[in-house]
Design a binder for these strands. Structure first.
Length: 702
DNA sequence: GAGCACTGC
């Protein structure tokens, strides 16, 4: 696929060269000028020297320093890619990866996929000539499963490390041990080779990985100290950024109602301050939608000849076309006010912002391993987030940030948010580490270690699922197969089991659909409409079957487009989605996941068969895999989970097809607390199946 | 009878 793209682009370039040569020359001059003006440009030699001198380097680069685009080029030019080795750069997000790679390819004047390439899930735009490779951190982790010493890389740069995603944290630990092992091989110590070979499976094939690995961690300032300590006192270098000054203003008193205070501030800015757009950080969809309504009401009360204000919302579950609206400049005479979640902190950069309003809160997810319970809670932001938010006002010129809390409250904030690894289930991480040859996962060198209880609960789950033996070893073939699939262990188990239940075809669809969040875009106005449409797909036996119905209904129009990618076929697909109030991006994503999973299970030699109308088989298979997620109806009509720390009085989520029917016994996908605890994506099972299908957890006497 | 930040393989 990458090859095809390469050829195409090369042809296009040749054909258009004469027409575009003049404008592309000008564009290139501009690019080079921009490069030379970056703060990092003046320290190129110094940086290269530091990398040559130290195996690990922490680079603290402020926004606008050019570190992500320039440093890899410096290293390439300094000869770090000798012997066909690569400079790898990891990023936490797909879009970021792609856009930096594009930019660098332009700067190097090469076709993307040649010297400069990128690799993200579903898209590998690299070739044998690629030397600078941008990728998501999760993908490099997957790569480590195949090549435990990451022997192709001379340098690995971990960008945005301060965001502390699970992938980044695991990657840091892994890179530390790979670096250690590779420098030891450099000393040619046979005994150590043997020891390490025992630790990392697949080692014998990878003898090339003997040269030392250079490691560069790029971070924001507040966390540099911690990274340096973690890497044994590694040297930290600071690079100047290029930001405009931002005036930070605080309130005198804490605000009771921050939404109300935000509105007051919006109008104050709108009526009294110079032109420039406003960015307001709120916590969720509901808050943003009511904020939008309230602003429009207040606007009506302003005198007719007042300045105009355009309200634009943005949050992740908004379909991407509507998200794009924030990038469009306000029409003449209008000031734009953007109501955003923390999507605008890192994922989306909005041009034209001069004013930021920061109430100081964020919605965060937490996980309770004992109850297997996720919760979404509004909490105060950290200092790092507050700085990130105010920085959004100074990208194009001097700006102002209004923090809706007193200055001494700022001092009380945590430095950084709690890293994700302390807020999620460890089951998947443990499985990955085991597959990488890390036997003692609790002893793994995490930069911050999750709680012991969290390890214990996930280890228990993996043993119950049959992924680990009673001696905590990865089982063969079940555990190995599960580790190969890019899924949560329960989903992987469901796929593996379903080939025995003759319903792998159905389970592939169900798992792909469960992996995609927010398939239906639901704004508060369209609520009833969504219900009516959803009814056509609804299965009385539960949501898993409903999801399968949606997928199958879309299959015809999707297949038509995916086999012949014409604009017309795409329109037909989009029209179908629109009519059924489904987010086309999400559905497309589900189809992509489905085909990736299908390839994987076929490679494992599993038999892809359909159970046809025998849906009992499918539900029995769900019970056999999701036995940790079973709930029983209580006399009061609410539900009780059967985990070892059970929870009472939970409701099936009202969007479920089982919400009204209230069956006796269900399996569910998630237990989430928002305003109340809810069970999401439920399907009816028979309680009596459990003793037969999951005897490891349900013996007959219980 | 309800709406859930953000990512990723």
């Amino acid at each position: 696929m990458a090859q095809g793209q390469l050829n195409n682009s090369t042809k296009t370039r040749k054909r258009n060269f004469s027409e575009h040569s003049r404008s592309s020359y000008a564009k290139r001059q501009k690019l080079l000028q921009h490069r030379a003006s970056l703060p990092i440009a003046s320290v190129e030699k110094l940086l290269v020297k530091e990398v040559q001198k130290h195996d690990t380097l922490i680079i603290v680069g402020e926004t606008g320093s050019g570190k992500s685009t320039q440093l890899p080029q410096f290293l390439y030019n300094a000869g770090f890619c000798g012997n066909g080795k690569l400079v790898g750069v990891t990023q936490p997000r797909r879009v970021g990866t792609l856009s930096v790679a594009k930019r660098v390819a332009e700067e190097c004047d090469v076709v993307l996929g040649e010297k400069v390439g990128y690799s993200i899930r579903f898209e590998d735009v690299t070739s044998t000539s690629t030397r600078i490779k941008y990728m998501t951190d999760g993908l490099l982790l997957r790569e480590a499963l195949l090549d435990p010493y990451l022997s192709r890389y001379a340098v690995i740069i971990v960008d945005e490390a301060h965001e502390r995603t699970v992938h980044t944290d695991v990657l840091l630990g892994l890179l530390k041990s790979v670096q250690n092992a590779r420098s030891k091989f450099g000393n040619n110590d046979k005994q150590l080779e043997k020891e390490n070979a025992a630790q990392c499976f697949g080692f014998r094939k990878h003898f090339q990985g003997r040269s030392p690995l250079k490691l560069i961690i790029m971070s924001a300032s507040l966390d540099a100290q911690m990274f340096s300590q973690y890497f044994g006192g590694a040297r930290a270098v600071h690079i100047q950024g290029r930001q405009f000054p931002v005036d930070v203003l605080y309130t005198y008193h804490p605000q009771q109602n921050y939404l109300d205070a935000s509105l007051t501030t919006i109008f104050q800015i709108h009526l009294e301050e110079d032109p420039g757009d406003i960015l307001v950080f709120l916590t969720g969809q509901e808050e943003i939608e009511s904020g939008e309504r309230l602003i429009k009401e207040r606007l009506k009360q302003l005198p007719e000849n007042s300045k105009k204000l355009l309200v634009v919302p943005i949050f992740s579950s908004l379909p991407s076309e509507r998200q794009m609206r924030v990038l469009v400049p306000a029409p003449p005479g209008f000031r734009k006010v953007i109501l955003a979640t923390n999507i605008a902190e890192t994922s989306v950069t909005i041009p034209g912002i001069k004013y930021v309003i920061d109430p100081g809160f964020v919605k965060a997810r937490f996980y309770d391993p004992n109850k297997r319970l996720e919760s979404l809670t509004v909490i105060p932001i950290s200092k790092a987030q507050a700085l990130q938010r105010s920085g959004r006002a100074g990208r194009e010129g001097p700006g102002k940030c209004f923090r809706l809390y007193p200055e001494n409250d700022f001092e009380k904030l945590e430095d950084s948010p709690k890293p994700e690894i302390k807020r999620c289930s460890l089951s998947n991480i443990i499985l990955q580490l085991k597959a990488l040859g890390v036997d003692d996962v609790i002893g793994f060198d995490f930069i911050e270690k999750p709680s012991r209880q969290s390890f214990v609960k996930s280890l228990e789950e993996l043993i119950l699922l049959g992924a680990l033996t009673d001696e905590f070893k990865l089982s063969n073939p079940v555990g190995r197969h599960m580790a190969c699939l890019p899924l949560d262990p329960i989903y992987s188990k469901a796929l593996i089991l379903s080939s025995e239940f003759n319903c792998l075809e159905e389970m592939l669809i169900a798992v792909a659909m469960l992996s995609v969040k927010s398939l239906f875009y639901i704004s508060s106005e369209k609520l009833d409409e969504v219900r009516t449409v959803y009814k056509c797909f609804e299965s009385p036996e539960g949501d898993h079957l409903t999801l399968i119905n949606v997928y199958r209904a879309s299959n015809e129009v999707f297949k038509k487009w995916s086999t012949l990618r014409t604009e017309d076929n795409y329109k037909i697909f989009r029209k179908w989605c629109k009519e059924n109030l489904i987010d086309s991006g999400s559905l497309r994503h589900a189809h992509d996941i489905h085909s990736q999973l299908r390839r994987s299970v076929e490679q494992m030699g599993l038999r892809v068969a359909s159970c046809g109308d025998d849906l009992l088989q499918f539900r029995r298979c769900l019970a056999a895999a999701f036995f940790c997620n079973v709930a029983l109806k209580q006399p009061n009509g609410k539900y009780r989970t059967l985990a070892n720390d059970p929870m009472n009085d939970i409701q099936i989520h009202p969007c479920s097809s089982l919400f009204q029917g209230k069956p006796e016994c269900i399996v569910f996908d998630e237990l989430v607390v928002t305003n109340k605890p809810y069970l999401r994506n439920a399907t009816i099972i028979d309680y009596l199946w459990l003793a037969e299908l999951a005897p490891q957890m349900y013996s007959l006497e219980n």
